[in-house]
Simulated assay, not measured.
Amino acid sequence: MSWATPVEQLRVLAADEWRALEDAHQQRVSRYADPYLARRSAGQKHPVEDFLFTYYTQKPGQLRRWHPGAGTILLGDKAIARAEWKHYRRLDDGALASLGLPAGSTAVTVDVAGFLADRKEAVAFAGIILRNTAARPAQFGCFGLHEWAMVYHQDRFDLRHEYLRLRLGSAGTDKVVEDNRIRCTHFDAFRFYTPDATVLNEFAPSRENQRHMEQPGCLHANMDLYKWAYKLLPLLPSEMVMDCFELSWRIRAMDMQASPYDLEEWGYPAIAIETPQGKAAYVEHQRSFAAEAALLRQRLAGALSAATAVEAR
């Protein structure tokens, strides 16, 4: 197979260089994954810190696996095992020669062409979501009421997070929902509303209109940058995926602080969005997260465009 990426765009890493990056990545993941795995083994739950491992499909073992991203070449005998990984390939002698490397050297890289061929629809959809979301004006008037709508009239339906106590009780929670505008634009939050809350939402987000509904002020749309990032592995570097993961981790914490649940004993003081002060605090956090997410969204879209542009030439 010939080498399609221009030599000047390549990053070549010796074994000691990329193994150090791999170790650093695994240590970064361990900070979050190890406590989760320990809780899971003990049959324990955490309402905030389990979420990224239980809601999203990327599991701790998959997250630990370090990927250098498209356009990076890994040298050394230990890289040969990666040639068997999905969407990786070993460079042939022609590619080695173009890099000034001896024939027969062990050099492995991401198989961009294979990835784009296998994941064509997923890549296209991720690109649409990233671009469309970035192009819309941010909305900051939801105040996290999606979590409240998920337990509205919960006495009539199956309990959500049955091991958690509602901070205002069922009646108080229902009153907050009824006294406020419910205007969620994110389908993957809206789909967990109780049936009685669904009709109260000003929008009707669906999987079909998701590409036209996502907006950059939404906490859940910004958390989902992690999802789009790991779905593009190994095209993207793991460092970028972890940047998205850590933003999502912090957003989840704030999202649950603003929820109807009493999480004081878990170390998460409430943001009381039923008050003017709580609403103001929520919007302040929301704007800050939106600014961070905008930069990450731009990086993700740029990396995706660069990889697809190289392959198109």
Rank of each mutant, 00 (worst) to 15 (best):
T133Y: 00
A204R: 13
A189C: 14
S206M: 04
E202G: 14
P195D: 03
N180T: 01
L166A: 06
V199R: 15
I182K: 08
V199P: 00
W148Y: 14
A149V: 02
A204K: 13
A171C: 04
Q154W: 05
T198H: 02
A171L: 11
G141Q: 13
L159M: 05
T198K: 13
C142G: 09
T173E: 03
F140S: 14
Y163I: 01
A189Y: 03
F143E: 08
N180S: 14
R191W: 01
F190Q: 00
A171T: 14
C184I: 01
R183E: 14
N180P: 02
F187C: 00
L164E: 07
V177T: 07
G172T: 04
C184L: 07
F190H: 10
L164Q: 09
P137F: 07
A138E: 03
L200I: 01
V177E: 03
G169K: 04
L164P: 06
T194G: 04
C142L: 07
P137V: 12
I182Y: 05
D179F: 05
C142H: 12
P205S: 02
F190E: 02
R165Q: 08
T185K: 03
P195T: 07
N180L: 02
K175D: 05
L168G: 05
V176D: 06
H186T: 04
N132G: 00
Y152W: 08
T185W: 01
F203L: 11
R191Y: 01
K175H: 11
A171K: 13
F140D: 14
R181K: 12
F157P: 04
Y193E: 00
Y152L: 10
T133L: 04
L159R: 13
